[in-house]
Computed example of a mutant assay.
Amino acid sequence: MDGTLVDSTAGVIGTWTAFAKTYPGIDVEDILSGGHGVRTVENLRKYCKIDNPDELEREAARFERTIVDTAKENGRPVIGVGEIMEELLPGSKNPKPCWAICTSATRVYASAALNMAGIPTPDALVIAEDVTLPQIRTF
């Protein structure tokens, strides 16, 4: 979704910059170069060193609310998305088009980002909450 349909760059940069005040020592440039397409909880665990599951969920929710608040004026569709949406909407070329989005974003953020960019909700939306990571065993 991000970078493909929605340009939320300003919101992501603004949010990591704000989180750097709460979590001194994180390298925003490093995060921006390697954190895209990764669930927020995983990025927060890795870069902010949050291990407590409850705190991790709270901070992930705060992070994504901050992206939405920061990107409200800047969240927009990526160039060319309007034409793609016209192809997907009913009545253009398919009487019953079906399309999906699979994103590392949470439902709250994905819904807000799509809304900000004027992109309709797809027939299927796979979000961060729909994915569980396997437990990795170390020996």
Rank of each mutant, 00 (worst) to 15 (best):
I26S: 06
I26C: 08
I26M: 06
I26D: 03
I26Y: 03
I26L: 11
I26A: 06
I26K: 04
D27T: 01
D27R: 02
D27V: 01
D27A: 05
V28T: 03
V28N: 05
V28A: 04
V28L: 03
E29Y: 02
E29N: 12
D30V: 04
D30T: 13
D30G: 13
D30Y: 11
D30N: 11
D30C: 11
I31R: 06
I31C: 07
I31V: 12
L32F: 07
L32M: 12
L32V: 05
L32A: 02
S33I: 00
S33M: 11
S33G: 13
S33F: 08
S33P: 09
G34M: 09
G34V: 11
G35L: 05
G35I: 03
G35K: 05
H36L: 14
H36Y: 15
H36A: 15
H36M: 15
H36D: 13
H36R: 14
H36V: 13
G37H: 04
G37V: 01
G37Y: 04
G37L: 03
V38A: 10
R39M: 14
R39P: 14
R39Q: 15
R39S: 11
R39K: 15
T40H: 05
V41M: 15
V41P: 13
V41Q: 15
V41H: 15
E42I: 11
E42W: 00
E42Y: 08
N43K: 03
N43R: 01
N43G: 07
N43S: 12
L44T: 03
L44H: 00
L44S: 04
R45A: 13
R45E: 10
R45L: 06
K46S: 07
K46T: 10
K46C: 02
K46M: 09
Y47N: 08
Y47Q: 02
Y47S: 02
Y47L: 04
Y47T: 01
Y47C: 02
Y47E: 04
C48A: 08
C48M: 00
C48Q: 02
C48E: 01
C48Y: 01
C48H: 01
C48D: 02
C48N: 01
C48K: 00
K49M: 08
K49F: 07
K49Q: 12
I50F: 04
I50C: 05
I50M: 01
I50W: 03
D51P: 03
D51L: 09
D51W: 10
D51F: 12
D51N: 15
D51I: 10
D51C: 07
D51Q: 10
N52Y: 05
N52W: 06
N52G: 06
N52P: 02
N52L: 06
N52E: 10
P53G: 07
P53D: 07
P53R: 01
P53L: 05
D54M: 12
D54Y: 10
D54C: 08
D54H: 12
D54N: 11
E55W: 05
E55R: 09
E55H: 08
E55N: 09
E55F: 07
E55Y: 06
L56V: 00
L56E: 01
L56Q: 05
L56H: 00
L56W: 03
E57R: 11
E57I: 12
E57C: 08
E57L: 14
R58M: 10
R58G: 09
R58K: 14
